[in-house]
Amino acid sequence: MRPTLILAAIMLGSTFGPPLMPANAEDASWGCQVLLCAASQNPSWHGVPYCDPPMTRLISAIKEPGFSWPICHEANAGKPGHETYDDCPAGTTVGYSSQGDNGWRGEPDQCIKTVDVCRSPGQRGFEAGLRGTAIRRSFGDRGDSCIEQIAIPRPRRADPYFFDIPNDLGVKQRFWFNLNH
């Protein structure tokens, strides 16, 4: 979608009436340029020449002390969210790789499956398909229980940042993006 059309849609969705003149993406504030580029899906902002300057500026600015995310007030989207990890595969639950003092948990960076290896030896396929990455945790006083937990690293998102942008009816749509340059 052309940047001008996206920006016009953002501005239309955030105002009560139509704009008096068509908006050009180049005239938008930096926050709206970033939002416009982050919302570009096919292609992503990486494939839109217009997006290179505002996103390169953003990537550089993030590294500076006191960085404040540029906001597009017209779109009512605010700052982006960030989720490092993707959902765990079906049949697994989110787990934590470590637990520190005072009950502090580490990152939710594991996917855990509990299996009864005595009743369902075929369940070990989960572990076999992930050679070198599975960790067994047996339950029981001597580690001789049939119940085991098998943990694998939780998949990381290719696009960990997101904007929730409301449409003209106020329903938010999520747009995922990354800041890899």
Score class of each variant (00 low, 15 high):
99 Q>V: 12
98 S>N: 10
122 G>L: 15
161 Y>M: 00
139 F>S: 02
154 R>G: 02
164 D>L: 09
139 F>K: 02
129 G>R: 03
113 K>V: 10
163 F>R: 11
130 L>E: 09
122 G>D: 13
144 D>H: 12
117 V>H: 00
94 V>H: 14
130 L>Y: 14
128 A>G: 08
100 G>W: 10
122 G>M: 08
136 R>Y: 13
136 R>F: 13
124 R>G: 11
164 D>T: 11
105 R>A: 15
159 D>G: 04
141 D>Q: 09
115 V>W: 05
162 F>S: 04
106 G>E: 04
106 G>W: 07
97 S>H: 05
147 I>N: 04
103 G>Q: 09
111 C>Y: 01
98 S>H: 13
137 R>M: 12
104 W>H: 12
140 G>K: 04
155 P>F: 01
152 I>D: 03
154 R>D: 05
100 G>E: 11
99 Q>A: 03
162 F>V: 06
115 V>R: 06
139 F>D: 00
163 F>N: 11
98 S>W: 09
153 P>H: 07
154 R>N: 06
160 P>Q: 14
98 S>L: 06
133 T>P: 15
101 D>I: 11
121 P>S: 00
104 W>N: 11
160 P>V: 10
95 G>R: 11
96 Y>C: 00
96 Y>E: 01
162 F>T: 06
162 F>C: 05
130 L>A: 15
146 C>E: 01
118 C>T: 14
129 G>V: 02
143 G>L: 05
155 P>D: 05
109 D>R: 05
160 P>N: 10
142 R>L: 08
162 F>M: 03
132 G>N: 05
124 R>V: 14
146 C>F: 03
105 R>K: 13
124 R>K: 15
139 F>N: 04
153 P>W: 05
115 V>S: 10
99 Q>R: 15
144 D>N: 14
107 E>H: 08
164 D>V: 12
147 I>Y: 11
120 S>E: 14
145 S>W: 00
141 D>A: 12
116 D>K: 05
156 R>G: 06
118 C>L: 12
107 E>T: 01
138 S>R: 13
140 G>R: 00
124 R>I: 13
135 I>C: 15
109 D>C: 01
112 I>N: 05
139 F>Q: 01
146 C>L: 00
146 C>K: 00
123 Q>P: 02
161 Y>T: 01
141 D>E: 15
106 G>S: 01
150 I>M: 11
154 R>W: 03
142 R>M: 11
150 I>P: 04
161 Y>S: 00
97 S>I: 06
104 W>G: 09
125 G>N: 12
135 I>T: 14
152 I>L: 07
161 Y>F: 08
123 Q>V: 10
123 Q>N: 13
142 R>S: 11
157 R>E: 11
103 G>H: 08
109 D>E: 03
121 P>V: 03
113 K>C: 06
129 G>N: 01
153 P>F: 09
152 I>K: 06
129 G>P: 01
154 R>C: 07
146 C>A: 04
108 P>I: 07
114 T>A: 08
165 I>H: 09
135 I>V: 10
112 I>T: 05
130 L>D: 06
131 R>Q: 13
106 G>M: 02
115 V>G: 02
148 E>A: 10
103 G>E: 02
95 G>F: 04
111 C>T: 00
144 D>Y: 10
151 A>S: 09
164 D>E: 10
107 E>D: 00
114 T>M: 08
106 G>P: 01
126 F>S: 03
133 T>R: 12
153 P>I: 10
143 G>F: 09
119 R>Y: 15
147 I>T: 02
132 G>P: 07
